[in-house]
Every structure is written in structure tokens, then in C-alpha cells.
Nucleic acid binder design. Structure first.
Lengths: 208, 208
DNA sequence: CTTTGTTCTAACAAAATTGTTAAACAGTAT
DNA sequence: ATACTGTTTAACAATTTTGTTAGAACAAAG
């Protein structure tokens, strides 16, 4: 058996499936279309992954892990002073989403259309997030007492950061055609948008 | 012919279709399921709307109009001073999305999955948005020259406002389970979130 | 060269989903 | 009453999509 070839077929199918599922969602994806894009017969797809459902789960598992990882990039380097840390965290998160622009919409759509499925996953995530945020809240509170920044709710701050960073990519296809020159050059716009998001959040925590 | 009854059947189907399409999207929606939810046979659905496609278009047309309308609520009352106007605009937009929480995700998903379809619609929207924003940009520039606010790009500001307001609802099902007590009471959270969004934007334009 | 296990193909099967039609039905006007 | 109109039902048809299977082709090992 040629291990290279076998690997490659499976990988080809997975790559095609990822593209199809991320853009069209589970319902819109077609196993025949995935097989075609991967350059194999649709019987092969079933041979390797048995069902559409199982193939989908392979993608979902990876994407949920990636999404969850992306949220922790907001925490960034704990050794830096708080303002620098937040600044770096926003930038890191922005870059992460820029590298995975289809991810948030996919994850959100999944959770909306089949919430039951992810309940277990979520119970755990809740605990982790809570403990991590408690630590950061304490750090922010100390900085606020020293008068370095405004006292803010760290969860609210995180929602704002995620809103600003994620929405840029989720709504990109929606806004690009109506925003004219501002979004004409994607690279340029994303750089400007990243700076704008950082500025917006830093002003939010700035002591006045 | 009983006009009341006829109206009501059509309305029942439309209402059920709206619910189904907004939550599941075109691909996930089933005509039989819509018919069942509306309390009619699926043949009736075809009698009134011929095809799934045509029924969907009825919903899409209305929803796109609503979405476009929602974006103009950000402009709010032109007679107010600029800061008050922006404040009111954010609040109005937030309330609008709160009343139509499924709208943005639906519209964005549609545009991502079938961009060709909305190209024409968009050419026009681009012009309108551009001229409206130019007017507001001039007003902001004047206020900045008077030293009332910071000079900002109005399109960037709009993207930030939409990000903060819309993401709250798009990602609600995603964040609710991991945010603990903060989001335990929906009403309370939304009120806090609205205030937070306004505060964030006002600080962004505040002269320092 | 035969055996063995895996990969692959082509044809088929099953199910789900959308769409159609003929006929029954109800109300209204002639 | 009769003919006419739009509405409704039930059964059916067509298509799409997913999933299965028998066996061919192939590579590796004895």
C-alpha cells in the first residue's frame, strides 16, 4: 500500500470538505460536490468517511478547537504591562481571524442551527473562560486602583474586542460593495481596521 | 371566496417560512416543515408560492429592505448636535437589531452563499451610502474643527457601531453559555451592552 | 506466482425533498 | 339549479442526494 497516496486522497477530501462546509454550511454542502472538488468519485468519499455526518464532524472538531484557541490569543503575553498586553492581544486575535476568515461565521451558524450538539462542549468552556477571566479582571482592577486605566468589566471588554475583530471578517462580503474606496484594497483596509480596533479599545480603558 | 381565510393562509405560510428561513437558511429549510408549521399541506404551499425559491424571495426581499433600513437608523435625528445624534443613532440601531435579532446573520449568510444574486442591489446601495456618509463626514469635520470631537473617518465609525451592535446578537447563542452570570438575564445584559457600546463609541470620538 | 488486504470503480438502492395533477369542494353569480 | 371561480386534498412523479455493494485493480508479502 502506498501510504503517500492514501494520505493524499484523504487529505484531498478533507481539504475539499473544509472549503465546502465553511462556505456553504452542512446543509448547503454536497458530498458529490466535495468529491468532485477533491478529484475522487463520491463512493471514495464514503469509503474513507462512511457518511457526510462523520466527514463533517472531522471538520467541526478541528474548527471548534481552532475557534476556541483564537479566543485565548486575546490574552497574549502575561508578562507585559496591562495596556501593552491588551494591545498585543487585540492584534494577535485580529491576525488569527484574518488567517481564518470563514471560521467565526461557520462556528456561529453551527451553534445556532444545532445547539443541543454543543451543550457538553460548552459546559467545560464556561468554566475555563470564567477562571481565566477572573484572573485578568483582578489584574485590571489593580491597574485601575493604581490609576493607570479605567475600571472596566473584562468580559464586556472581551465582547467588544471580539465584536470589532470578528465582525470585520464576518461582514466583509456584506460591506465591501457598499463602502467604496475605503475597502477597495483589502490589505490596506485590514491594516487600517486593526489599528482602528486597537485605538477604540485603548480609548475605552483610558483613564480620563 | 372567503378573503379573510385566504389572507390568513398565505400569511400563515409566510410567517412559518420566515421563521424557518431565518433560523435554518435556504438550504436547511424544508418546504414540508414550513407547511407543517403553518398548518397546511405542502401542496398548498406550492399552490400559493409555486416554488421554494419564490417563497424564499418573498422573505429575502422584505428582510433585505429591513436590514437596509436598520443601517439608516444610525443616522438618527439630523437636528441634534453631533454627539447627541451619534448617541441616539447607536441606541436606535441597537434597539432595531434587538427587535430583529436573526436578521443580520440571515442577510450575511445569503450574501456569502450567493453573491451574484445581490450584485445589482448593491451597486445602488453603494451610491446611496456614499452620498449620505459624505454629508455626515462633513458635519463631523466641522465639529472637529470647532474642537468638539476628535476627527474620525465616518465609515470606520459606522463599521465599529455595526460591529458592536450586531455582533452582540449574532454571537449571542455562542457566548451566552460561556459568559456565566453576565448574560444570565437577557434583558439586563442587553441594556448593559447597549450602554457599553455607546460609551465605547463616544470615547472613540472624544477630544483628548 | 499466489495469497492477502487495501483501494477504487461502476452500478445500483434508498430516502428525502420538491414539484405536479386530477378531482373534490365551497362559495358566488347567472 | 347551474355554471363558474378559486381553494384544498390526496396521490403521484421527478429529481436530487446520500449511502451501499460486488467485484476489479493493485500493491506487498510469503
Amino acid at each position: 500500500m502506498d501510504n503517500q497516496e492514501k494520505q493524499s486522497k484523504e487529505q484531498q477530501i478533507l481539504a475539499a470538505a473544509e472549503q465546502e462546509f465553511l462556505t456553504k454550511g452542512y446543509d448547503g454542502a454536497r458530498t458529490t460536490s466535495i468529491a468532485q472538488a477533491a478529484g475522487v468519485t463520491h463512493a471514495m468519499l464514503h469509503y474513507y468517511f462512511r457518511t457526510k455526518e462523520q466527514l463533517f464532524e472531522r471538520i467541526v472538531d478541528e474548527k471548534f478547537a481552532t475557534m476556541s484557541h483564537s479566543m485565548f490569543t486575546i490574552l497574549d503575553d502575561p508578562s507585559l504591562p496591562i495596556v501593552e498586553r491588551i494591545k498585543g492581544g487585540i492584534a494577535a486575535h485580529f491576525d488569527f481571524i484574518a488567517a481564518n476568515p470563514l471560521l467565526p461565521r461557520f462556528v456561529i451558524n453551527e451553534i445556532v442551527s444545532r445547539p443541543e450538539r454543543y451543550e457538553v462542549l460548552y459546559k467545560r468552556a464556561g468554566f475555563v473562560v470564567n477562571s481565566v477571566y477572573n484572573g485578568l479582571q483582578a489584574e485590571i482592577d489593580r491597574a485601575a486602583e493604581r490609576g493607570e486605566i479605567e475600571r472596566v468589566d473584562v468580559k464586556m471588554l472581551f465582547i467588544s474586542i471580539m465584536s470589532l475583530n470578528i465582525f470585520t471578517f464576518v461582514a466583509y462580503p456584506f460591506m465591501e460593495p457598499i463602502m467604496g474606496e475605503l475597502m477597495a484594497n483589502r490589505e490596506q483596509f485590514l491594516a487600517a481596521r486593526k489599528a482602528e480596533n486597537i485605538e477604540t479599545i485603548l480609548r475605552r480603558i483610558k483613564k480620563q
